[in-house]
Amino acid sequence: MSTKKRLAVNKTYKLYLGGKFPRTESGRYYELNGRKGALLANVSRASRKDFRNAVVAARKAWPGWDGATAHLRGQILYRVAEILEGRSEQFEEELRAQGTTPAAARKEVTTAIDLLVHYAGWTDKYQSLFSSVNPVSSPYFNFSMPESTGVVAAIAPEESGLLGLCSVIAPILAGGSTSVILASHTRPLCAITLAEVLNSSDVPGGVVNILTGFRDELLSQFAEHMDVNALLICSDDEKEIKLVQERAVENLKRVISHVDGPLAESPYHILDFQEIKTTWHPVGV
């Protein structure tokens, strides 16, 4: 091994949109600095147009992901966990660079991996939990079952760059919806690296789209877009929550809010992005 100091190859952090890694169409960026003020990255500052493009990609990907077998969705989610495990050092490094202590970084990565494994196991089970055969008082067979809501727009938690993000993405993915996620503004690095993991784990392009940028700029667009079916916001700011709830009215979006991400693993987080469909058919000869 050479003793000469080698010049590191720095990564360019871009957006993740329709399975590709484009720069923002706006050409804008914001500087992300590390603890000692050194530049970590010029992070893409996504525009409203980027968001609209992402929704188009998510809508296009939805029939395929919704129609994939529950078993396959589980396999793919488990694959995400596998790849993340293999790249855990990179994630820890990014977390540390953004100010997390080494021990906390280690814990965040392993918890995120385990959370993904947990949801990988739910993909073919929550339907049985939330379905019912209903005993109607007439000669009909009647059953209710959950179906994915469609396209979900999500504002990831600000504080938890990887675990919070995974807790947002996993239940949406497990339940067959597709998503557009706005990553943490101050901790965006893991989001784009996670996109690389998703990209190499057979998650079809467009199923998860990740933007980085400014919350204020994108928040109302996330809430207003007419082709988004549901909105998840992680925030403790009451004004912000009120704003998105008001803007979500135009197409009656389902709005779910969490203070710091749906961190506790639960199939009810999957149910948040499901619609119950009831089907009737006569019984007779």
Partner: peptide, 13 residues
């Protein structure tokens, strides 16, 4: 509703 329409029941969401 398949092969029927406008059927209701308390047990049916």
């Amino acid at each position: 509703w398949a092969n029927t329409f406008n059927k209701f029941d308390p047990g049916s969401p």
